[in-house]
Amino acid sequence: MHPGLKDGNMSTLKLSFKVNGKLTSLAVAPNALLVDVLREDLGLTGTKAGCREGECGACTVLLDGEPVNSCLLPAMKAAGREVTTIEGLVQEDGTLHALQQSFTDQGASQCGFCTPAMILNAKALLDKAPHPDEGQIRQALSGVLCRCTGYRKIVQAVQNIAQGK
């Protein structure tokens, strides 16, 4: 039998990864999903669970800089990698990330449940393409559902950064 296989019930696995720049190590159940590890074990509740099947996008985090649905991600997939959540965008002195400030200025948040995911998707876009047009912005945000805003102010908040406003 392969050494990785164990008899009996679940034994925990050790997950070591970088979360918001900090090396983090903890024991997780083999069937744990990243969204639950972040929210329940690490207290990073800015990452939301809205549908648990990758449709609403509220659970979006950045995995090595790329947006992914943390509800679809077995936690062990994050081993050795870097995860960024909304909590990781605020600077240590409390200064908001430009996108967070822009969302506030623009009134892009209503109920706020999708806001962290929207901001993270926007960040991933701007990190790659600093000056996207409206179409690119809408495309980049198309994996996060918002039922409140009609998306206009969210798109504008990202546009303002893209246009250096």
Binding site: R39, L44, T45, G46, T47, K48, A49, T85, I86, E87, L89, V90, L96, Q100, Q101, F103, T104, D105, G107, S109, G112, F113, T115, P116, I119
Partner: peptide, 20 residues
């Protein structure tokens, strides 16, 4: 058009919803 009072909590992920 003042900024929303709860915005700073929302954009930073600090606002607690029931499941949080």
């Amino acid at each position: 058009s003042v900024r929303r009072v709860d915005d700073p909590l929302k954009v930073t992920g600090k606002l607690k919803y029931g499941a949080d």
